[in-house]
Amino acid sequence: MQKSVSLIFLFLLFINCSTSKEKKIDEYVFKTKKEKTLYLTSYNKALQLWQVPYKEENIATSFGTAHIIISGPKDAKPVVLLHGMDASSTMWFPNSAALSKNHRVYAIDFLMEAGKSELKGKSLTSDEIVNWYEEIFNYYNLKNFDIIGASRGGWFATLLTIQKNKNINKLVLISPAQTFNNVDQKGKASTAMFLKFFPNKKKLNKTLDAFSYYPNKINSVYKNQFYLANKYSKSNASFLQMRPFSDDELKGITIPVLVLIGGHDVINSEKSLLRANEYISNCKTATIKNSGHFVSMDQSKEVDKMIVDFLK
């Protein structure tokens, strides 16, 4: 494992230090204005897939601009959505209607990768990432809110839940990465790494085949945005900070938790659910049939129903 991490770090270092023939821009994620414009155009097209009325807001934080997609009744209970790596908040389009019916949804773009949040300065530590999210929660005066995290967003959601001064009421983890155990099927999961390092449509298809049970059913507009995120944006080292949470950290989670994984998930296996049930006192788990790591897209209706019922 240590050797694998070292190789990934070298690849990240290589990519982040690479140069471009186009004029550079002073930004953490994109190398050129053209690349940023192309990506943001694809983002806006994907956001049109959102199934309910929404608004976009940008708020200033100590670490840069936070971009949030907001939907649902103004006076409803708040729920925060944290997306997976390179997926951006637009990934929630299949779930937006169900989640927005009885909740005020706040979908936050992570600021160290492709999306509309923008980092100022250097890469953030785990503690700084926690502080960044808490600034957003304080800005919206979120109290006793629910939080849903997918993949790496699930790891961040768990990290936020184990903090002392949290205001989180319920936690939903959708195939959380590096949360209960390390990556289950490293060989298949590595397709995402090669897509990032050497992006082309063939590698995109291999990645989707590995991560989705129904890759051909993924909306082509969103698929293009996901591809451009890998093609144009720099890799960030935040996932190198991610390690499975300790027994004591998991035991400290006393709020209700729902953990969902796909039956063909390359990131998690039943071992993840066993560990969740063993150490989290108030935990429900389920394996969703005919779904991969992209379980909220592969089986959106079933996932939506389970989440909505859990959050009632």
Rank of each mutant, 00 (worst) to 15 (best):
L173Q: 09
E270C: 15
T179L: 08
V183R: 15
I136C: 06
S175H: 10
V266K: 05
F156L: 04
S151D: 15
F211Y: 05
T191C: 07
A150T: 06
S190K: 01
Y222I: 09
N181I: 15
F197P: 00
K203H: 06
L208N: 03
A177I: 02
K170F: 04
L173R: 13
K170C: 02
F137K: 00
P199N: 04
D247A: 10
H264G: 13
G263H: 12
K251G: 00
S246V: 01
R152N: 14
A177L: 03
T191D: 09
F145P: 11
F239C: 09
Y140D: 09
L159I: 07
G262D: 06
A189Y: 02
G263V: 13
S246G: 02
N181S: 15
S246P: 00
I148T: 02
Y139R: 04
I174L: 06
N205D: 01
G149M: 10
Q225L: 10
S151I: 13
Q163R: 15
L260I: 09
E135S: 08
K234C: 11
Y140M: 13
V257M: 10
I253S: 10
N216E: 13
D265V: 06
S190G: 02
L142P: 12
I261M: 04
Y222M: 12
K166T: 03
K196G: 12
I267C: 08
